[in-house]
Design a binder for these strands. Structure first.
Lengths: 132, 132
DNA sequence: ATGATATCAGTAACGATTACTGATATTGAA
DNA sequence: TTCAATATCAGTAATCGTTACTGATATCAT
């Protein structure tokens, strides 16, 4: 049961996310989608982001800054978080899937996967540091 | 300035954390420390956990469950999070520091470190699954 | 001892997120 | 094309973890 019905709002949210590579938060999605549909509710944005994430159509990123970020790119890849400006940036790097096996070696449970994010200063912020 | 003064409350919190290996949350610290000092305030627990973390005496773990966990073991090690019961468990595994270098290869910022946690079913929960 | 001030207990405020409400939109079937 | 069933909506209230404020208390160098 609980068949999923089509909704304009959900399509707008998904389309917006696909147009962005900077992993927006729910609030940023809300502010942007509202320019097309000024009546949309913040609750609707949250509900649909959760729904899309549960369906596997988008990814929810918890990078430790207290706010959830969302990514329309569900392919396996890693993220960098700038501790100065808060930017969340895609990393192009070889797979490190092997670490899951490493972790499972001496562990008596079942390891399903891992979450990794890298932090430091992004290109822009690192440049500003040098100048000062 | 802002010299740090000794406080019984902070000592109690640190001592409690050191007695535990299960990475308690602020609320659990509060409930336990309150058995020794029923007058202690939740705000005091939060303030001192943050203070201790800032001083590097404990580690703050953000494992993605919406609640901060704290660890008195500041040595480098990794954590497993059970997606069923929420337990946070130490992992004994070889260092994977190398992944920071991997990530920095094609990146134009400065990578300072990484955060990784593994998730799945812990020993107890995995056992229950088989039975059912 | 005592003055300066870091810390406290208690409580109010905060921000992100979730839950509730009656109204609206979508859908499969008549 | 209607229609009934119900998923979704907009709007708003409530929740939850955490932080900030307050006047009182504890610590510590002098």
């Amino acid at each position: 049961m609980a068949a999923i019905k089509h909704s304009r709002q959900r399509e707008m949210i998904k389309a917006f996310l696909k147009s962005r590579k900077d992993h927006p938060t729910a609030d940023i999605v809300y502010m942007n989608v509202r320019q097309q549909n000024p009546n949309i509710s913040l609750g609707t944005v949250y509900r649909n982001l959760t729904l899309l994430a549960d369906m596997g159509e988008i990814r929810r990123l918890r990078v430790g800054d207290g706010v959830d970020h969302f990514d329309a790119d569900t392919s396996p890849h890693y993220h960098f978080v700038c501790t100065e400006c808060g930017a969340v940036i895609d990393l192009e790097m070889d797979s490190i899937e092997g670490i899951t096996e490493l972790a499972g070696a001496g562990f008596n449970g079942r390891i399903a996967g891992h979450v990794t994010y890298f932090y430091g200063s992004c290109g822009n912020c690192a440049k500003s540091e040098k100048l000062s």
